[in-house]
Amino acid sequence: MAERSSPPTTARPHPSRRKFLDWLLGTSLVGFMASVLYPVLRYLIPPVAGEAATGSVTLPFKPEEISANSGRIFKFGNRPGILIRTQTDELHALSATCTHLGCIVQYRPDLAHVWCACHNGHFDLHGQNIAGPPPAPLEEFTVNVRGDQIVIGKRS
């Protein structure tokens, strides 16, 4: 039986080569994960809808269709607004999205002002937050009655 020669010491794997391979595999793994995760994350972020830059809207109902001491929700672009006819026959238009947590507000005839049912927020007829948790006023819109039409516009 021939004596086996011990392997030459130079054949030992070079540590820097091993390190290089580890580095290569590691970065490939990171690159691979990134190339999978990036499209997935981008996929989950919804595309920005071209929000209609609404400056003014003409309401689909006539001035006489809203009685005194009541309110009615209308679409201002893709957001809700509220039109109010007061006891003294004035028309007010406000954004209907509560500034607290985004519920849609309503007109309370018994209080004669605007109220949010979600967290008991109160606003006056100009949208000022007067009680409850809302931290900011509702945006007030301009109301113009032109014959049969009500035109609501943003305040400049």
Partner: peptide, 27 residues
């Protein structure tokens, strides 16, 4: 999506304590 929030709106009961806290906190 274009109707006012109804009166008595509330979450599931297990979120009620958080909902109620938010309701009671001042602005």
């Amino acid at each position: 999506p274009f109707a006012p929030a109804p009166m008595g709106i509330k979450p599931e009961w297990y979120f009620m304590f958080m909902f109620q806290t938010l309701k009671l906190l001042p602005a």
